[in-house]
Design a protein around this nucleic acid. Sequence first.
RNA 1: GCUCCCAUCGUCUAGCGGUUAGGACGUAGCCCUCUCAAGGCUAAAACACGGGUUCGAUUCCCGUUGGGAGCGCCA
Length: 503
Amino acid sequence: MRGTPRHAGITLGQSSHRTSPIHTGALLMTVRVRFAPSPTGHLHIGGARTALYNWLYARQHHGTFILRIEDTDRERSTEEYTHSILDGMRWLGLDWDEGPIYQTDRAQIYHTHLNQLLREENAYRCFCTPERLEQLRTEALAAGRKPTYDRRCRDLTPDAHDTRPCCIRFKAPLTGQTVVQDMVRGTVTFDNKELDDLILARSDGTPTYNFVVVVDDVTMQITHVIRGDDHLNNTPRQMLLYAAFNYPTPLFAHLPMILGSDRKRLSKRHGATSVIAYQQTGYLPQALLNYLARLGWSHGDQEIFTLEEMVRAFSFDHVGRAGAIFNPEKLDWVNMAHMKSFSDEELAARVEPFLAEMGLVPHDRDYAARAIASERERAKTLRELAEISAFYFRPSVVWDAPAVAKWLDADGQRILQAMTPMLHSVETWNADALKETFSALQARENVKFLQVAQPLRVALTGTTTSPGIYDVLTIMGKTTVLHRIEQALVHAKKAHGYSGPVS
RNA sequence: GCUCCCAUCGUCUAGCGGUUAGGACGUAGCCCUCUCAAGGCUAAAACACGGGUUCGAUUCCCGUUGGGAGCGCCA
């Protein structure tokens, strides 16, 4: 038996503090929360945050996190999306304790509940055609009224033999108020006269969303419904259903929406919105989670959290009420911060799949770790890290034409020619020895270090940007360095022609 | 249109009657420097507006404006 004596429905004048609802039953009930996506698309950013808040709350209270797939829309739900959502959840590390539970497996449960409502005259058959409803809606809108059903069938004398197609509607109370106690919004009051006799089952007998959520949440003994803001207007209708069943209402927490840069609800046209897209671009799951957690929730001035820290610190007291714009630049920064927490070896291991996509397979773990280490603070994502480190692993250099034009001109070639024998004779290949070599070279050629470093950099990496030149030199090793300089000279002659400098 | 929600720098936010309104991302400048980053320092940048309540409002109340969501035999 659950501890909350809270009942939905025609509650009047309840007062509460948004900080304390859980305490009423904390000793008696264990937290049971759920994430209930519908498989009509990939797991998206908004869904991921809802899932995260549920998960954090469950873990913090040593409760149960349930994954439920809302697949009652047979038209749009696909198995592919179901798998994609499950994969997304696993990648994020949001493990669930029960489920996935599929609503399509629960038809019998809904049927039983529907019959109960019918039997107790809390629901009725409605014979109105979709056409009539559509007409009602247009008329209402034109007249400046809220489009609601006119309840024509509500008081029809039941005729069991009537075989016309009909849907089942809820007989909602006409008066009174329904008060939602929300952990982030506080008290929200709705006049029941604003609410509708909502459809519980379609004429083909399948149940609808507002009905199944209630039945599911009740039968799964959900204690806290944590979901998007877009459901706040559904909540009073659902509470009326709880009341009709004489079930206690769970506690609610309605999270503000995640917005695009135009302040509209985040959608495809704002760029990548699916979680897998972020996986593919090389974001760390813990970084995405960290960013999402802080989008709408805060803990003083702290920006970077480990998962454990989030579990410990999370609280609805500090969940904001306003919609939040998704900011990709800040995500990048958070991702960089999390990349710093890995050792060179761990980071290299995570970059490997992205190198593999480019057909590059490092054969030496130690070499890979040192190569990645030299580039790690230059990349925002794992993919970017793989891309800028690729030159270490390629059999030959990929030339950046402007870089070649600028630095492998006649002067650059002369420097490379001059350094070749000097590098050959370097015995111990380390930064100190190389520094001495270049000092000697600078003195002999009377050039600045820049004029040595840049041609060399282009020769070794193909581009003008790279880690410190001594890092590249020592990581690559003498053999590769000399080989690449030789190749660079060949390429430079081709690019610039044999007749000396171009301009 | 109706109902509900929301409102602090460009963005995410701290603030829970008295603060030089704090932090972070981004931006600009400087330092570091072989390139690019990273890092360090500095700067510009906000309480939407109007009424109350109060000795005193960013903070509490009301309204205006502005934004968002919902109003399906979708979820």
